[in-house]
């Protein structure tokens, strides 16, 4: 079988999400008032600024190629070297994500960034090139967010090592705005405000 070791990793990751069959988004539980709606949308704007930031969106792609952007990379482009998602999201035989991306950022300018379990987000969790409304709908949809409640989404943002990388992306890269803790809190407030999504 191909990728026996990494397939296992992928299974563990997907099982951890699937192990929560009762988990559902909370938006239907919280009444949305006009005031909380406005406040909720404002919270969403802050969350969206993080999710749509290249440090996050470049690896939340719909196709199977991560993106590169930033100074000295020109306009946003597909990751060089024909890097692909692969069957498990961790790359292909011979060119795994871990071939270049280790547990920590390379200290060298233009060297590969790194964090634990470097890989592409599943294709259904697409943020790259998507509107604020589309990202918002995806985040709330358990079919497309790994079966997570918004509480679990918030926890994931706060606790996951690869997510945390977005705020500590290594030399020469602009970090995502805010921090993991702030984004966690914003998601909590947004959920509490009824998790409203923008029109577009």
């Amino acid at each position: 079988m191909r990728f026996s070791g990494t397939l296992l990793t992928a299974l563990v990751i997907s099982l951890s999400a699937a192990a929560l069959p009762g988990a559902r988004a909370q938006d239907s539980d919280t009444p949305v008032t006009p005031a909380s709606g406005e406040q909720g949308l404002a919270e969403w704007e802050g969350i969206h600024a993080v999710f749509a930031h290249p440090r996050c969106a470049n690896c939340h792609v719909e196709d199977d190629q991560p993106r590169w952007s930033g100074e000295s990379y020109g306009k946003t482009r597909v990751h060089a070297f024909n890097v692909r998602r692969g069957e498990d999201g961790f790359g292909n035989a011979g060119l795994r994500c871990s071939t270049c991306h280790s547990e920590e950022n390379s200290a060298v300018l233009h060297g590969p960034p790194g964090a634990h379990a470097w890989h592409l987000a599943p294709a259904e969790m697409v943020w790259f090139d998507k509107s604020s409304a589309e990202i918002c709908a995806q985040i709330k949809d358990p079919e497309r967010n790994g079966g997570r409640s918004l509480e679990e989404v918030a926890n994931h943002v706060r606790d996951d090592a690869l997510v945390a990388w977005g705020w500590n992306p290594g030399p020469g890269r602009e970090p995502a705005p805010g921090s993991a803790e702030e984004t966690f809190a914003a998601i909590e407030r947004w959920a509490a405000a009824g998790a409203p999504c923008p029109e577009e």
Binding site: N82, R84, A93
Partner: peptide, 24 residues
Amino acid sequence: MTAVALLEEIADPTDEDIDNAMGG
């Protein structure tokens, strides 16, 4: 070395497998 790793995973790679492994 990359080809060795490729062939450990895929015994008889297609051209596409090769493109997906050797681009780096």
